[in-house]
Measured scan of single mutants.
Amino acid sequence: TSSHKLRLYERDDYRGLMSELTDDCACVPELFRLPEIYSLHVLEGCWVLYEMPNYRGRQYLLRPGDYRRYHDWGGADAKVGSLRRVTDL
């Protein structure tokens, strides 16, 4: 099985509160109590970021690497509604 891990930060450049995720999350704002995510670091696996909860809205593919600001993943703003692991490519 492949492993997945990413870290979410409330501010750009990996500042502020950090939360780690290793499984799908249908509602990021509810789980982490963060209305917006300004940076993230994908440590393992690929993920799909959705701008709205319950895997809706615009989708962004996140490969392992650094995303210091939301425009690094192509986002128009810092809204992160849900995240899902990519298990098949």
Rank of each mutant, 00 (worst) to 15 (best):
P29H: 08
S2D: 11
A76Q: 15
G45E: 02
V86F: 11
R11G: 11
D23Q: 07
D88Q: 07
Y14I: 04
R58T: 07
P29F: 15
G65R: 01
L49Q: 00
G81N: 04
I37H: 15
Q59C: 08
Y67D: 00
D12Y: 10
L49D: 05
L61N: 12
K5G: 01
L34N: 15
G74Q: 11
R7M: 07
S39M: 04
P35L: 07
L21R: 01
E30D: 11
E51H: 09
R69Y: 14
T1A: 08
E51R: 07
G57M: 00
R11V: 04
E44Y: 06
Y70K: 11
S39E: 01
W73Y: 12
W47H: 02
L62I: 07
Y70S: 08
A76S: 13
R58K: 08
G45K: 02
Y14Q: 06
L8M: 14
R56N: 15
N54G: 13
E10A: 09
Y55E: 00
W47F: 00
P35C: 10
L17F: 12
Y67P: 02
G45F: 02
Y50W: 03
S2N: 14
R15G: 13
D23Y: 08
D12W: 11
V80W: 08
D13I: 03
R15A: 14
T1C: 15
H4L: 01
L6P: 03
P64W: 08
D13R: 08
R84Y: 03
Y14H: 05
R84W: 05
L6H: 06
L17E: 14
D77G: 09
R56A: 14
K5W: 06
L49V: 06
Y14L: 07
D66P: 13
P53N: 05
D72C: 11
E44R: 06
P35F: 06
R56E: 15
P29W: 09
G74I: 06
Y38E: 12
T22I: 09
S39R: 03
R56P: 01
E10D: 09
V28T: 02
L40D: 01
S82K: 00
G45P: 00
E51T: 12
G45D: 05
G74L: 04
K5S: 06
